[in-house]
C-alpha cells in the first residue's frame, strides 16, 4: 500500500468521523428545534444566535456532571456498555460512498473509506451488533427497569432485523450486487431504487426506525413505563454517549437509506453539472446532494417522533412478525416474478 493512499484514507476517515459527530451534535439541537416548531414554540434560542451554541453548552454540561456508578453494578460492563454503543454507531460509516471519485492534484480519490465486497451486509452486521451496548449497559446497571429496557431492546432489534434483511434481499434482486459503491453507481441520474422498490423502501424505513430505537419504536427507553429504560442508572458523559449514539445511528441509517434507495450522490441532471464544473467540484456537488437527502431523512425521523405515539409492546411484536415479515416475503416474490418476466421480454 502506498503512502499517499494511506494518507488519503486517513484524512477521509477523520473527516467522516468528525462530520458524523458534528451532525449528531447538531441533530440534538435540531430535534429540540423541530419539536418546538411542530408544537408552536421557538425552542432553545438563548445560547448564541438562534441557539447555535446549545449543543456545546449541553456537551459541556454532560462532561461536568457527577459520574455515578451504582455500587451493585458490574463496573467494567457498566462502562463497556456506552463505549460499545458509540463504537458500533461510529463504525457503520466506513462503507458508505459519500460521493463520486474526485480528482485532486492528479489523483483520483474515492470518497468511500473502503469498498468491501459485502457492503450492505457489513452495515447490517454493525447494526445488529449495536444492541449489545444497550443490553450490556442495561444488565450491568443491576436495576429492574434497565433490565426490562435491555430485554425489550434485544427482542425488538432481533424481530425487526428479519424484515429489514428480507427487504434488502428484494433490493439485491434488483441491483445484483452487495457493494454499496456499485449500487450507488447503478442509480445514475434519476434511476433511483425507490422507484423499483417502493414497498421494500417502506419496510426498510420502518425497520430502521425500530433499529435506531426512535419513536414510535422507542420502547427500550420508554419513560412512561421504564423511567429511563436501559440508561436509567447512567449519568454524565456515559448517558451522553448513549444519547449521542442514537443520533449517530440516525445519521448513519439516513445515509444508508439515501444510498440504497434514493440514489446516494446521484441527482437528475448530474452529467450536465459535472461537465460544467469539472472533476473536482462536480462530485462535490453530489456530496452536497447526498447530505441534503440525509438531512431530509433526519428531519423525517424527528417529524415522525413528534407526531406518532409510541406502540404498545404487543403491537410492536404483531407489526414486526405478522405484518412486516409477510409483506417483505411477498415483496421478494413479486420482485422475483417481475425480474423473470422483464428478462424474458
Amino acid at each position: 500500500m502506498e503512502l499517499a493512499l494511506i494518507i488519503e484514507k486517513f484524512i477521509l476517515i477523520t473527516v467522516v468521523f468528525a462530520l458524523s459527530l458534528v451532525v449528531a451534535m447538531y441533530s440534538t439541537l435540531a430535534e429540540r428545534k423541530i419539536a418546538a416548531f411542530l408544537q408552536d414554540r421557538v425552542g432553545p434560542n438563548r445560547a448564541g444566535p438562534g441557539g447555535m451554541f446549545q449543543p456545546l453548552a449541553d456537551g459541556a454540561k454532560m462532561f461536568f456532571k457527577e459520574e455515578i456508578i451504582p455500587e451493585q453494578a458490574s463496573k467494567f460492563l457498566f462502562i463497556a456498555g456506552p463505549s460499545l454503543a458509540i463504537l458500533t454507531a461510529c463504525t457503520g460509516s466506513a462503507v458508505i460512498p459519500w460521493g463520486d471519485a474526485i480528482a485532486v492534484a492528479g489523483r483520483i480519490v474515492d470518497l468511500q473509506v473502503t469498498d468491501i465486497n459485502v457492503g450492505i451486509l457489513y452495515i447490517f452486521g454493525v447494526v445488529s451488533l449495536g444492541v449489545y451496548g444497550v443490553m450490556i449497559g442495561g444488565w450491568a446497571s443491576n436495576n429492574k427497569f434497565s433490565l426490562m429496557g435491555a430485554i425489550r431492546a434485544a427482542s425488538q432489534n432481533i424481530s425487526y432485523e428479519i424484515p429489514m434483511g428480507l427487504s434488502i434481499i428484494a433490493l439485491l434482486l434488483v441491483t445484483n450486487t452487495l457493494s454499496l459503491k456499485e449500487i450507488t453507481a447503478q442509480q445514475h441520474g434519476w434511476h433511483w431504487n425507490v422507484l423499483y422498490q417502493p414497498l421494500g423502501f417502506l419496510l426498510f424505513m420502518i425497520c430502521s426506525f425500530a433499529e435506531t430505537n426512535r419513536t414510535p419504536f422507542d420502547l427500550p427507553e420508554c419513560e412512561t413505563e421504564l423511567v429511563g429504560g436501559y440508561h436509567t442508572e447512567y449519568s454524565s458523559m456515559k448517558l451522553g454517549f448513549y444519547l449521542f449514539a442514537e443520533y449517530i445511528n440516525m445519521f448513519i441509517s439516513s445515509a444508508v437509506m439515501a444510498t440504497l434507495y434514493f440514489g446516494g450522490y446521484n441527482y437528475p441532471g448530474m452529467d450536465w453539472v459535472n461537465n460544467l464544473l469539472g472533476p473536482l467540484w462536480g462530485p462535490l456537488i453530489g456530496v452536497a446532494v447526498l447530505f441534503l437527502k440525509i438531512f431530509v431523512f433526519i428531519f423525517f425521523f424527528m417529524w415522525v417522533r413528534w407526531t406518532v405515539p409510541r406502540f404498545r409492546y404487543d403491537q410492536l411484536m404483531n407489526l414486526g412478525w405478522k405484518v412486516l415479515i409477510p409483506l417483505a416475503i411477498a415483496n421478494i416474490v413479486i420482485t422475483g416474478i417481475w425480474i423473470t418476466i422483464s428478462d424474458k421480454l
Binding site: N117, V118, L121, Y122, F124, G125, V127, S128, L129, V131, Y132, M135, W139, L147, A150, I151, A154, S155, N157, I158, E161
Partner: peptide, 23 residues
C-alpha cells in the same frame, strides 16, 4: 461473505438470544 454471515447470524442474532435468556 462467510465472515459477515458469521458476524450477523452468530454474533448479532444467536448470541443476543443467548444473552437475552441468561438475563
Amino acid at each position: 461473505f462467510l465472515a459477515i454471515v458469521n458476524f450477523i447470524v452468530y454474533m448479532g442474532a444467536i448470541l443476543v438470544l443467548f444473552l437475552f435468556v441468561l438475563m
